[in-house]
């Protein structure tokens, strides 16, 4: 603590009216407050200790440390195994998802091409009229491409171009 006179002297220079004040704190405290405060703090401390004790005594600190180590190891091991076994993602798609997507697209396209071929305009617009004339009806044509056609092996674009 500083010498009171020094503080007063300092105040006299800066704020003379303050020098006259007592410097006491003008607030009251409930009776016996400072007698009971240490007990209140002790109670809170004991509650906290009890809480910690309950948590650690259930697990036991050494067991808790072992359990934590094993858990961390399992998490890391699991993560690396999962990383190895999961197909690599590409642009948000896994290999499987890409394959499914392409297969669905390709199958749809193929069906549409066949549909056109069999039922519609494509057949009428085809240039090779002689070739189509060899078939009596659409069923015969479907049988033909089912037997000889290799459209399944072609890309949708190739099928489209072949017409």
């Amino acid at each position: 603590m500083e010498d009171k006179d020094k503080i007063k002297k300092e105040l006299k220079q800066v704020a003379p009216s303050l020098e006259k004040h007592s410097g006491e704190t003008p607030f009251s405290v409930p009776g016996n407050y400072f007698e009971t405060l240490p007990q209140d703090i002790r109670k809170r401390r004991e509650q906290l200790q009890k809480k910690q004790h309950t948590v650690f005594s259930r697990l036991g600190i050494p067991q808790f440390a072992y359990a934590l180590t094993v858990a961390v190891f399992l998490i890391f091991a699991g993560y690396f195994i999962w990383q190895k076994e999961t197909p690599q993602a590409m642009n948000g798609y896994t290999d499987d998802a890409l394959f499914d997507e392409y297969f669905a697209y390709y199958a749809d396209y193929q069906s549409a091409a066949y549909y056109d071929m069999v039922l519609g305009e494509t057949l009428e617009e085809a240039e090779d009229e002689e070739f189509f004339a060899t078939f009596d009806n659409e069923d015969e044509f479907i049988d033909y491409i089912a037997t000889y056609g290799d459209y399944y092996m072609q890309s949708p674009i190739d099928v489209e171009n072949s017409w």
Binding site: T25, F27, V29, Y33, F34, L37, P38, I41, R42
Partner: peptide, 30 residues
Amino acid sequence: DLIVRKYQEKIYWHLRRLVLDHEDTNDLIQ
């Protein structure tokens, strides 16, 4: 406990002068 008893009043008044209210000071000192 001895540390609390030694410093409780100084810390209390330091807090009280800043927050003014006794109940707030009581919570803070604990």
